[in-house]
Design a protein around this nucleic acid. Structure first.
Length: 366
DNA sequence: CTCTGTGTTGAT
DNA sequence: TCAACACAGAGG
């Protein structure tokens, strides 16, 4: 676990990859002779095929070369994947199927050479949304980590899991310019997701009192939460907001003719109670910039002290490795003495520590 | 023993 | 960079 923390975006990066002990790649049951591919290639593996009759032991022992870039045949009929960087070969593992190896090469190529690297399968100019997510996933892991996943055949699982947890956490706390797009990190694997800050409000005593409602300033309400002219005053609509922990809060949103106010009603008191909101605390609303337009809600205590959990120092966002991450204030002081902390804030601290631990490692490129 | 993945070289 | 080839030595 030494050089496994190297990372960078698109420039040169330290290798220190493959030269590790050979990893155990054993995941195929029978060493049965693999029936050869439908390709009209040469005889299988290195086993020489001496024709029953004529014993021309000529050059019958050639391995079938692959039609895919980065794929090399193995003597036993399997396929190896490799990529070169800095005049050195980086081994990506062995695979039963030729195209599996080709896919492994493609993934490595995108991590090592960037998004428009030449690959075996990916079309050149098509950038889908799924590709965006995968690109973020790739860039949030070091080359060594990606290579390790490929060699262990765990890449697909890791990618899929990261898609699941792409829950994000709070913006708004350290956000200096509301209204701008931001990138946040997920807890365990740092997959990115952009959100747009909509607005914040310091809650009033009545917002957290017995009225069980939050008044949305008209200006923000009409801009971000437009109501259809039909059901305006009456029923309103139900809106779902996700909080930092991934929990979804559903509030009824409507317009009160009596007070000429836009309000969140049903469901709001529960939020106040669970978060232990006090007058003066800040609630902030975000929305995914993606097509889903998912809404998010977050909150913070007025002074930085957190009512429910423990006091927390302000957090600042920094940009590292081309990715925005949060950085803990004092040194790398992470969650060590965090015995008293819990809940959301704790999650955030964990996140911070993870990111702060892996630091830049200078590479002496030549 | 089987099989991976490195050493190495020549081609592009 | 890249793949072809041979085979040392890792692993069961």
């Amino acid at each position: 676990m030494d050089g496994s923390c190297t990372d960078e975006s698109t420039t040169s990066e330290t290798l220190s990859i493959s030269i590790s002990p050979t990893s155990a790649v054993s995941s195929f049951p029978p060493p049965t002779k693999s029936p050869e591919s439908p390709l009209g290639r040469v005889g299988s593996g290195s086993s020489v095929i001496l024709d029953s009759e004529s014993g021309v032991e000529a050059e019958s022992r050639k391995l079938p070369s692959s039609k895919y870039k980065g794929v090399v045949p193995q003597p036993n009929g399997r396929w190896g994947a490799q990529i070169y960087e800095k005049h050195q070969r980086v081994w990506l593992g062995t695979f039963n199927e030729e195209d599996e190896a080709a896919r492994a090469y493609d993934i490595a190529a995108q991590r090592f050479r960037g998004r428009d690297a030449i690959t075996n399968f990916k079309p050149q100019g098509a950038e889908t949304e799924a590709d965006d997510i995968e690109a973020a996933f790739l860039n949030s892991h070091s080359k060594a980590e990606i290579v390790d996943m490929l060699r262990k055949h765990t890449y697909d699982d890791e990618l899929e899991q990261s898609k699941r947890n792409y829950k994000i956490d709070g913006l708004g706390k350290q956000n200096r310019n509301p209204g701008a797009n931001n990138v946040a990190l997920s807890g365990s694997d740092r997959v990115l997701k952009a959100r747009e800050q909509l607005f914040e409000k310091a809650v009033t005593p009545s917002d957290v009192g017995k009225l069980n409602r939050l008044v949305i300033p008209k200006q923000h309400a009409e801009k971000h939460f437009p109501l259809q002219s039909g059901n305006n005053s009456t029923k309103g609509v139900l809106l779902n907001f996700e909080d930092i922990s991934g929990k979804v809060w559903r509030f009824r949103y409507s317009y009160w003719n009596s007070s000429q106010s836009y309000v969140l009603t049903k469901g709001w008191s529960r939020f106040v109670k669970e978060k232990n909101l006090k007058a003066g605390d800040i609630v902030s609303f975000q929305r995914s910039t993606g097509p889903d337009k998912q809404l998010y809600i977050d909150w913070k205590a007025r002074n930085g002290s957190n009512p429910v959990v423990c006091s927390v120092q302000p957090v600042q966002m920094v940009r590292l490795f081309g990715v925005n991450i949060f950085k803990a204030p004092g040194g790398s002081g992470v969650a060590e003495g965090a015995g008293g902390c819990n809940g959301k804030r704790m999650r955030e601290m964990e996140l911070l520590s993870l990111n702060c631990i892996k630091k830049q490692r200078i590479i002496g490129a030549l």
